[in-house]
Design a protein around this nucleic acid. Structure first.
Length: 332
DNA sequence: AAAATTTGACCATG
DNA sequence: CATGGTCAAATTTT
């Protein structure tokens, strides 16, 4: 509570504002006699969003991420958009061709419908790239060229995939027209703890592997400076290789300290009440097991001039790292 | 040496 | 059959 950067304050305000917005939406839903079944689902989503907003707000207040210089690494400003809004890139990024976003179709196969889109925009000052760290460890397991996209899409999965039964995966892809924009699609719920391999050497971690559906939605609830560090490292790496392409990216002036996150859920949730089976035992080799939620987030970050510079000299972390098992998603 | 990427092939789905 | 997602071996990085 010492001093809260403007950025943080803004984030906080935005967070709360959004929460209010969503609350209103929820009220609207409640008032307008819910007819269809998806209304109920929508309401659930709304509630979740509200919770998320609160969580984030609290996180901001609690952690107070006192990052001396680096100011924005973690996207924290979810703006919830109405469900029916198809493509609403917040207006700025005109890129993103038309289709290829999501097939709301489905509904003819199994029950994997719930897919909401989260749009995240991070602002500069931070050279974060694809590896938007959600506080989890991701391991790249593939990269594919996507038709219509000039940049390949990277596939990441939780490092503890079959260990903890964390079936979460994420896809990172840059926008075709805006190289500074990365679309990160989170899919699946991760049941692993945020355990970034720092302290916390708990042994008996079998208290409750059943991760709530919110897990993937609100991962980085307390991004500490350490996490940021990790981010930087990873980002650095990617940068190095993408530098060639990013060359011109660094020319793009993005100097608006505004971070926006837009939630959109085209088809709302279905019945993702599924519980990931207790760790182990599974060993299933990733196949659309029971991952129901797909969160897409596009993050845009402007690369200063030389991102690689100075990142190595990041110290002064570990100031507090108040991350105990305190605020963890909504208590089961 | 171990863990994480890379990369091409394989498989599933539309 | 084309497109996208995952696997798995080889390779690189720490």
């Amino acid at each position: 509570m010492e001093k809260m950067g403007e950025w943080e304050q803004r984030s906080l305000v935005s967070e709360l504002t959004q929460g209010r917005e969503v609350a209103r939406q929820l009220q609207a839903h409640l008032n307008g006699a819910s007819s269809s079944s998806y209304d109920i689902e929508t309401r659930e989503v709304l509630v979740q969003k509200i919770e998320a907003s609160y969580e984030k707000a609290l996180s901001i207040l609690n952690c107070n991420v006192n990052t001396s210089s680096a100011s924005a690494v973690v996207p924290l400003t979810p703006v919830i958009r109405m469900p029916e809004s198809p493509n609403s890139r917040c207006g700025s990024p005109p890129s993103e061709d038309s289709d290829r976003s999501f097939r709301v179709s489905d509904a003819s196969k199994k029950r994997k419908a719930p897919r909401w889109t989260q749009e995240v925009r991070v602002t500069p000052g931070t050279a974060l790239e694809g590896p938007l760290d959600d506080g989890f460890s991701w391991r790249k397991y593939g990269q594919k060229d996507i038709l219509g996209s000039r940049f390949p899409r990277g596939y990441y999965r939780c490092t503890h995939r079959n260990i903890n039964g964390c079936l979460a995966t994420k896809q990172v892809q840059r926008s075709d027209d805006d190289p500074t924009i990365f679309d990160i699609t989170y899919v699946g719920t991760h049941s692993c703890r945020n355990v970034t391999s720092h302290l916390m050497s708990e042994k008996n971690q079998e208290q409750g592997p059943s991760a709530s559906s919110m897990a993937a939605v609100e991962p980085q609830s307390s991004s500490s400076s350490q996490d940021l560090l990790l981010n930087f490292q990873k980002g650095l790496k990617v940068k190095t290789q993408d530098l060639e392409d990013q060359t011109y990216a660094s020319l793009i002036p993005y100097t608006s300290s505004t971070s926006n996150v837009v939630f959109s859920w085209p088809s709302v949730i279905d019945n993702n009440r599924n519980f990931v089976s207790p760790a182990t035992s599974g060993t299933d080799f990733g196949f659309g097991t029971c991952d129901d939620q797909i969160i897409q987030a596009s993050a845009a970050a402007s690369v200063t001039s030389s991102p690689t510079v100075g990142l190595d000299h990041f110290h002064q972390l570990d100031g507090n790292f108040t991350f105990d098992s305190n605020g963890f998603f909504r208590h089961g």
